[in-house]
Simulated scan of single mutants.
Amino acid sequence: MNAMRENDTFVLSKPVEATIIGEHRTVVLPLGTVVTVVLVFGDPSSPAAYEVEAFLPKDDAYALATVEARDAG
Protein backbone atom coordinates (compact mmCIF):
# COMPACT_ATOMS: atom_id res chain seq x y z
CA MET A 1 0.00 0.00 0.00
CA ASN A 2 1.30 3.44 -0.91
CA ALA A 3 0.88 6.11 1.75
CA MET A 4 -1.38 8.97 0.71
CA ARG A 5 -0.72 12.64 1.25
CA GLU A 6 -3.01 15.60 1.74
CA ASN A 7 -5.00 16.44 -1.41
CA ASP A 8 -4.71 12.89 -2.81
CA THR A 9 -8.00 11.35 -3.86
CA PHE A 10 -9.28 7.78 -3.79
CA VAL A 11 -12.52 5.82 -4.04
CA LEU A 12 -14.03 4.33 -0.89
CA SER A 13 -13.85 0.54 -0.84
CA LYS A 14 -16.67 0.28 1.69
CA PRO A 15 -19.37 2.54 3.18
CA VAL A 16 -18.10 5.05 5.76
CA GLU A 17 -19.95 7.16 8.33
CA ALA A 18 -19.32 10.90 7.89
CA THR A 19 -20.44 14.19 9.41
CA ILE A 20 -21.77 17.08 7.35
CA ILE A 21 -19.46 20.07 7.85
CA GLY A 22 -21.16 22.76 9.93
CA GLU A 23 -24.01 20.49 10.98
CA HIS A 24 -24.55 17.80 13.56
CA ARG A 25 -25.92 15.43 10.95
CA THR A 26 -24.34 12.08 10.17
CA VAL A 27 -24.55 10.42 6.75
CA VAL A 28 -23.11 7.27 5.24
CA LEU A 29 -20.82 7.74 2.27
CA PRO A 30 -21.49 4.76 -0.01
CA LEU A 31 -18.94 2.44 -1.53
CA GLY A 32 -17.44 4.13 -4.61
CA THR A 33 -17.57 7.68 -3.25
CA VAL A 34 -14.58 9.78 -4.36
CA VAL A 35 -12.91 11.40 -1.35
CA THR A 36 -10.00 13.80 -0.85
CA VAL A 37 -7.43 13.38 1.93
CA VAL A 38 -7.41 16.50 4.14
CA LEU A 39 -5.31 15.18 7.04
CA VAL A 40 -2.91 12.27 7.56
CA PHE A 41 -2.88 10.68 11.03
CA GLY A 42 0.41 9.24 12.26
CA ASP A 43 3.72 8.82 10.48
CA PRO A 44 3.30 10.19 6.92
CA SER A 45 5.25 7.23 5.49
CA SER A 46 3.07 4.71 7.33
CA PRO A 47 -0.16 6.47 8.40
CA ALA A 48 -2.72 5.01 10.78
CA ALA A 49 -5.71 6.77 9.18
CA TYR A 50 -6.87 9.63 6.99
CA GLU A 51 -9.40 12.40 7.49
CA VAL A 52 -11.21 12.65 4.18
CA GLU A 53 -13.71 15.04 2.64
CA ALA A 54 -16.45 14.28 0.13
CA PHE A 55 -18.82 16.61 -1.73
CA LEU A 56 -22.48 15.63 -1.51
CA PRO A 57 -24.24 17.14 -4.53
CA LYS A 58 -27.71 16.16 -3.25
CA ASP A 59 -27.15 18.22 -0.07
CA ASP A 60 -24.85 20.82 -1.69
CA ALA A 61 -22.54 20.20 1.27
CA TYR A 62 -19.26 18.59 2.24
CA ALA A 63 -18.80 15.76 4.72
CA LEU A 64 -15.78 14.63 6.76
CA ALA A 65 -14.93 11.06 7.68
CA THR A 66 -12.03 9.14 9.15
CA VAL A 67 -10.82 6.17 7.13
CA GLU A 68 -8.27 3.67 8.43
CA ALA A 69 -5.20 3.54 6.21
CA ARG A 70 -5.74 -0.16 5.44
CA ASP A 71 -9.17 0.74 3.96
CA ALA A 72 -7.88 3.58 1.76
CA GLY A 73 -7.19 3.30 -1.92
Rank of each mutant, 00 (worst) to 15 (best):
N7L: 13
N7W: 13
D8V: 03
D8N: 03
D8I: 03
T9H: 08
F10P: 00
F10C: 03
V11G: 09
V11E: 07
L12M: 03
S13Q: 06
S13G: 12
S13K: 07
S13M: 09
K14Q: 04
K14S: 02
K14T: 03
P15A: 05
V16K: 02
E17G: 06
E17H: 10
A18Q: 04
T19S: 12
I20G: 05
I20H: 08
I21N: 08
I21F: 12
G22V: 09
G22S: 07
E23L: 14
E23I: 13
H24Y: 15
R25M: 14
T26R: 11
T26L: 11
T26D: 13
T26V: 12
T26Q: 14
V27K: 01
V27W: 05
V27Q: 00
V28Q: 06
V28D: 09
L29S: 00
L29E: 00
P30N: 10
G32L: 04
G32D: 04
T33R: 06
T33C: 04
T33A: 04
V35C: 11
V35S: 09
T36P: 12
T36V: 13
V38G: 06
V38Q: 10
V38N: 08
V38A: 06
V38P: 06
L39P: 09
L39E: 14
L39Y: 11
V40T: 12
V40H: 09
F41L: 15
F41I: 14
G42Q: 09
D43N: 06
D43P: 07
D43T: 07
P44N: 02
S45C: 15
S45G: 15
S45H: 13
S45I: 15
S45N: 14
S46P: 12
P47W: 01
P47C: 00
P47M: 01
A48R: 15
A49K: 10
A49L: 10
Y50G: 01
Y50A: 02
E51Q: 13
